[in-house]
Amino acid sequence: MESVKESIVIDCKSETVTSINQMIRDFAKNNIKEVIIENPLARHNLGVCITDPIHLIYNGDVGYYAVSLCDKVTATINGNCGWAVGENLMSGEIVVNGNAASSCAASLRGGIVVVKGEAGARAGISMKGGTLIIGGNTGYMTGFMMQKGKMIICGDAGKALGDSMYDGVIYVGGKIAELGNGTKVEEVSEEEKDEIKSLLDFYQIEPPPSFQKIVPNGLLHHFNKKEFRVWKEIL
């Protein structure tokens, strides 16, 4: 471990996951602004439950649950991610300069998660707030049971998109293999187009020519209305 001004480098090769997490927490508590994590070697659980402000830079691929259960943390991942990057993030920002495997930003509560490449199945599943941006395509059941928040998918979306979503909004720039139950397509307003464009410009993601907007249709919200065709799929 070596110290460079306000930035500290951790070489994962010589540390356990627990010691790395503990060091990050200690640095954050002591107002260190930035930690550079070298050689993450796709190990799981790097950067878990960090709740003081700090910026993390991962130089390499990470395993499951990178930057998960965190609050007030910003992170740049210069590599690909295993499952559930940014899971349950409360606030902050995660930028993945690579691809993300399944369940990225699962149960996201706040802040923003940006995946510049592709995302696997169940991206933004059970989102409860925040924003998820995917530069490429995304897989099956993306946005399943989404409760709040905003998702912008620049590429194609897999089947069951937004299935059973309670609230929130999903914008898709490419093709949608199949809409999920309880969803409908709405027009994208000019205000929304501007907001999407500014977000994509900010993160230097090439925007697609247009977006479709997916929102809940409300048919699953009350089981006392006879909606057999919908109930059959979900209840």
Partner: peptide, 14 residues
């Protein structure tokens, strides 16, 4: 949303 009939998922998201 308040007042919705809520059904939770049966599989963990992650």
């Amino acid at each position: 949303p308040a007042g919705v009939d809520q059904r939770s998922p049966c599989r963990h998201p992650d």
